[in-house]
Simulated scan of single mutants.
Amino acid sequence: MQRLETIKKLSEYGLVAVIRANSKEEGIKIVEAVKKGGIKALEITMTVPGALDIIKELSDIYKDDKEILIGAGTVLDPETARACILAGAKYIVSPSLNPETVKLCNRYRIAIMTGIMTVKEAVEALELGVEILKVFPGNAFGPSIISSFKGPLPQGNFMPTGGVNLDNVKDWIKAGAVAVGTGSDLTKGASTGNYDLVTETAAKFVEAVRTAR
């Protein structure tokens, strides 16, 4: 049930915060700022120093909060996926389609979103049981790619990541995206230590998704 509940919540929230940082401390601050702005699905990328420690710490902090979803991003292989799951990640996100990683997540009933760029990859992911397909990098195509995918694959749930910002997030949702992932445009305030700006931007993203729906 946990996997199904996670997928349901990700679809309901419609927004995943992609957390990249230069240190564990900065990562924690960004997470808190984003959460304060109303985003409940938090993806800690494996490019963040101490990413597994952050996932474990956050999973412990929010273990009784059924609304907050802590996930792991930039997961390239099954070994990393397993480590993230042990640390408490409720979902796994990968920039590409790795069948062995999908199989491992299926084995442990953990939701996984794999990166796809072609209809062939999308079909392969669906055949492996992937529920939400990550269109990455989204800025290589733009929102119209969602409706293009939806033509032959109306049953697919697509989540673009890469290039999603406040100016186009509504276009992505209206094009048929079940959710969007956003990182640099959301957390850019952190580069200057302005975490209030991160919170403010998060709130704007939440509202933009809500109104687009």
Rank of each mutant, 00 (worst) to 15 (best):
L128T: 13
V130T: 09
E124R: 13
V206Y: 04
N157Y: 05
L186P: 01
G138R: 10
E67P: 03
K90M: 13
A212H: 12
E67N: 14
G129F: 05
R20E: 09
L197F: 02
L76K: 12
K66F: 03
N157I: 10
G151A: 15
I61M: 10
V48R: 06
G38V: 10
I61G: 05
P143A: 10
E43C: 00
S23D: 10
R3L: 02
A122H: 08
E124K: 13
L133N: 00
G183P: 03
V31R: 06
G50E: 06
I112D: 05
I132R: 08
V34L: 01
S148A: 15
S23C: 11
G14C: 05
G27V: 08
L4P: 07
V18Q: 05
A140W: 12
E43I: 09
T182M: 07
G142F: 11
T118K: 13
E43W: 03
I61S: 05
G27N: 04
K9Q: 15
V135S: 04
P95G: 09
F149E: 02
T118C: 09
K56V: 02
D196K: 11
V180Y: 01
K9R: 15
I110A: 02
M117C: 11
F158A: 08
L126V: 11
E12R: 10
A89G: 01
G88N: 09
D167F: 11
R20N: 09
I55N: 01
G38L: 09
D185E: 14
T187L: 08
L52M: 11
L97D: 06
P143W: 13
P154S: 10
A179N: 07
D77E: 14
K66D: 15
M113A: 08
L153Q: 07
D167H: 13
T45I: 13
G156K: 08
A111H: 07
V198F: 05
A175H: 03
I145K: 06
A72M: 08
C105S: 07
P95V: 12
Y195G: 10
F205G: 04
E121L: 09
V48K: 02
E131F: 00
L76W: 09
K66M: 12
S23L: 12
R109I: 01
K24E: 14
E79S: 07
I70D: 04
T114S: 12
G138V: 13
T45E: 02
V130S: 04
S94C: 02
F141W: 15
T118G: 04
L97Q: 07
F141D: 01
S148N: 14
G189P: 01
K40L: 13
I28W: 05
I44S: 02
L15Y: 02
D171E: 15
L10M: 15
A81W: 01
R107C: 07
A41S: 15
L128I: 14
V135A: 09
L166F: 10
P152V: 15
I54G: 05
P143I: 14
I85A: 04
